[in-house]
């Protein structure tokens, strides 16, 4: 959840200073900030778990990323020292920024998913995660509304915007299936009552997408072959470049305080 939030926040922040107008530059930067904030909350909690249960997480803490950390692990170690194969995000969030249509459609797909996920998490057995989810949900309702309105605007705008959004949907659709295919860690979370199986969100998610697409005059793609692997650490080629850029200072000057 933290990796998803961080990487999409990072991608959205690539728009800061380059948005289609000032108002939307501000809006997408806001969403990037919310996502990085969510990532920090999750990473901080994860770091706390690792530090308090070092034995239970021994195999993970033996990874080259964490062996160089003296003392306890913090949010930045998790974000800046892991290699691509240690990231467990959905492939959807790591894809390049693309044009405004691509950014909008991706945001709508992921926000609609995160809204369901966090609603579920909020009801789960882990109090800390439930609290993070509750806080994030306020932001999510804005993300879903904002991106959903843009989907409709681009779908029902000009010929060019319609062509671009259809193209974006075609490119992104194969990456949506992974959202609902549970990984090992999600199954474990389900067993502990932290979350339900994400496959159970798919119907609600699809209804939300269909509703917006109907207003936008967009067809739902029929392709049901899913690109997957992110949650197992097998990523697209894009993630390596993203991390090389994002992690460059931490890796060039190990052990420094910033």
């Amino acid at each position: 959840m933290a990796d998803d939030a961080l990487l999409l926040g990072h991608r959205n922040s690539e728009w800061t200073g380059h948005g289609p107008n000032l108002e939307q530059d501000i809006a997408i930067s806001n969403i990037a900030l919310d996502q990085i904030g969510q990532a920090r909350n999750f990473y901080q909690y994860a770091a706390l778990q690792f530090n308090e249960n070092r034995n239970a997480y021994a195999p993970l803490l033996q990874s080259p990323a964490f062996r160089q950390v003296s003392g306890s692990i913090d949010e930045d170690n998790l974000a800046y020292l892991r290699n691509a194969n240690e990231f467990k995000n959905h492939l959807l969030v790591e894809l390049n920024r693309g044009d405004w249509a691509f950014t909008i459609v991706r945001q709508f797909f992921i926000s609609a998913y995160q809204q369901l996920l966090y609603t579920d998490l909020q009801k789960g057995t882990n109090k800390q995660l439930a609290a993070i989810a509750e806080k994030s949900l306020k932001e999510l309702s804005y993300h879903v509304r904002w991106s959903g309105e843009w989907v409709i605007r681009l779908g029902d705008g000009t010929e060019e915007s319609n062509r671009r959004i259809i193209n974006a949907v075609d490119q992104l659709w194969p990456y949506t299936g992974e959202l609902f295919l549970p990984a090992d860690f999600q199954q474990m979370a389900a067993e502990q009552g932290i979350l339900t199986d994400p496959a159970s969100y798919r119907q609600n998610w699809l209804e939300k997408i269909q509703e917006a697409f109907a207003q936008a005059g967009l067809p739902i793609p029929s392709n049901n072959w899913w690109q997957k692997g992110g949650k197992q650490g097998i990523h697209t080629e894009h993630l390596g470049y993203l991390l090389a850029e994002m992690q460059y200072l931490q890796r060039s000057y190990p052990g420094s305080v910033w």
Binding site: G17, G19, P20, W100, G157, T158
Partner: peptide
């Protein structure tokens, strides 16, 4: 940024 955003602004006004 302005030119790349032209189609977005046009779509928003058309809508």
């Amino acid at each position: 940024a302005h030119e790349d955003g032209a189609w977005v602004r046009e779509a928003a006004s058309a809508f």
